[in-house]
Computed example of a mutant assay.
Amino acid sequence: MADISHNSTNDTLIALDIAKKHHDALIQLPSGKTISVRITNTLEGYQRLLSLAKVEPSRIIVGFEPTSDYHRNIAYWLSCYRQCKNDPLTATEN
């Protein structure tokens, strides 16, 4: 079994359990500290998740198993957030 008490990549790791109305998340900070949180499947929930991560979007690695279609919104939002390094709803193209 892997030792997950120390994150050697200096990235923040996020594991998501996807559901229809909410997602359960386990966040592992580079220090090894873990945060367990339930977020709503809404924009506010996604923003809360990233605020708890406390790092730049490029330093976040997210993993989840796609569940029905419930994963699509958060997957798209996280993808845009990471590329824009901004909120995808307020980002403008150059």
Rank of each mutant, 00 (worst) to 15 (best):
M1R: 10
A2R: 09
A2T: 03
I4A: 00
I4K: 03
S5G: 02
H6V: 13
H6D: 10
S8H: 07
S8E: 05
T9V: 04
T9N: 06
T9A: 13
T9M: 10
N10S: 14
D11C: 08
D11P: 00
T12P: 02
I14N: 00
I14P: 01
I14L: 01
I14C: 03
A15V: 01
A15E: 04
L16V: 06
L16P: 02
L16H: 06
L16R: 05
L16C: 05
I18H: 00
K20H: 12
K20R: 10
K21S: 12
H22S: 14
H22C: 06
D24P: 04
A25S: 05
A25C: 12
I27T: 10
I27E: 07
Q28R: 15
Q28K: 14
Q28D: 03
L29M: 15
P30Q: 14
K33M: 07
I35V: 13
S36H: 11
R38Q: 11
R38M: 07
I39N: 09
T40Y: 06
N41I: 06
N41G: 07
N41F: 08
L43K: 05
E44I: 10
G45A: 00
Y46F: 13
Y46G: 00
Q47I: 00
R48V: 01
L52E: 06
L52P: 02
A53Q: 02
A53W: 00
A53C: 12
A53S: 09
K54M: 05
K54Y: 02
V55P: 02
E56H: 15
E56N: 15
S58M: 09
S58C: 06
R59A: 08
I60D: 01
I61H: 08
V62E: 02
G63Q: 11
G63F: 07
F64K: 04
E65H: 04
P66V: 08
T67P: 05
Y70F: 12
Y70P: 01
Y70Q: 10
H71W: 13
H71G: 04
H71N: 09
R72C: 07
R72P: 00
N73I: 01
I74R: 03
I74N: 06
Y76D: 10
Y76P: 00
Y76T: 14
Y76W: 15
W77V: 04
W77F: 15
L78H: 04
L78A: 08
C80G: 10
C80Q: 14
Q83T: 13
C84D: 12
C84Y: 15
C84F: 15
K85Y: 07
K85N: 15
D87V: 12
D87K: 11
D87C: 14
P88H: 13
T90K: 14
A91S: 08
T92V: 06
E93L: 13
E93N: 10
